[in-house]
Design a protein around this nucleic acid. Structure first.
Lengths: 142, 142
DNA sequence: CCAGTTTACGGACACCGTAAAAATC
DNA sequence: GATTTTTACGGTGTCCGTAAACTGG
């Protein structure tokens, strides 16, 4: 099962037509036929009942449709979160600091950052200078 | 982004090695290299930091890993639910009955069925014979 | 050097697009 | 008979596998 196949499946379910789905996806209609057929074969399940006049989704197709939508949505989220993480706007931000030296402004800084980048998990650690250097050694990032 | 690519990505992340992932997936190692590279190119994001000695996932890679696992899990669920639905063990079961004729055993039947197939949404409708025939006409299933 | 990743290259398989056939109204 | 799906077929593109080059310890 691949996402491109599911996209075709969703289009057919939405438009109730193989040819209309093909137009929407900018491919030819036999390609849609083949993709749906192979998906049905892979699952061993009939997803649409169709003849030359109408296309009707089956009960099993309805079930798959819900899951397919979820998977496509998840794909978009995965892409977005990953790219956001790469820009430093998500992931984990671990801050080692010396409490005595900067007890005042760290909370303000962290609060502002957290508000701006809500997807970042932040952890604060009160470390000595030696501990900080050691931590850097152990976990060097790109 | 395709699921087969994500499977390779997950294998590399798990084993921290391109060649080990290749062995696990029964393909050759250059294929893994290409898939990861194309995934990184598609996202515009570096997913692993690697040299000939070690493979280390990046922060962005960690984020994608979580989503990738979710997508693969969703795929399995989609397959299972769909096949279950095709066997009549999920979906919607709508029962039209005549209350006067079988007021006694319907509840027992339904309760037993619901216990056996928890994924089925059941709705009961008290219909006359004409209404039942009409309902069949309007919503013929496979 | 050695183990592992990347790059280069040749070939096979899958998938698309065109075209014809089948089917349903 | 017209429209839509299915099937058949030829071709191209993608992706795999083999082999060689590169990289870092």
């Amino acid at each position: 099962m691949e996402l491109c196949t599911l996209r075709s499946f969703i289009a057919v379910a939405k438009l109730k037509s193989f040819s209309a789905a093909a137009r929407e996806l900018h491919i030819v209609q036999p390609a849609i036929s083949r993709q749906i057929a192979s998906l049905e074969e892979e699952l061993g399940v009939s997803l649409f009942w169709r003849n030359t006049r109408e296309v009707k989704i089956t009960a099993a197709g309805e079930v798959l449709l819900v899951e397919a939508h979820a998977m496509i949505a998840l794909e978009g989220r995965a892409k977005e979160y990953t790219q956001r993480a790469a820009r430093g706007q998500a992931g984990n931000l671990r801050i080692g600091y010396i409490s005595s030296a900067c007890s005042g402004f760290i909370p303000t800084l962290v609060r502002a950052y957290a508000q701006r980048y809500p997807h970042v998990a932040i952890s604060l650690q009160d470390l000595t200078v030696e501990q900080q250097l050691d931590a850097f050694d152990k976990e060097v990032l790109t």
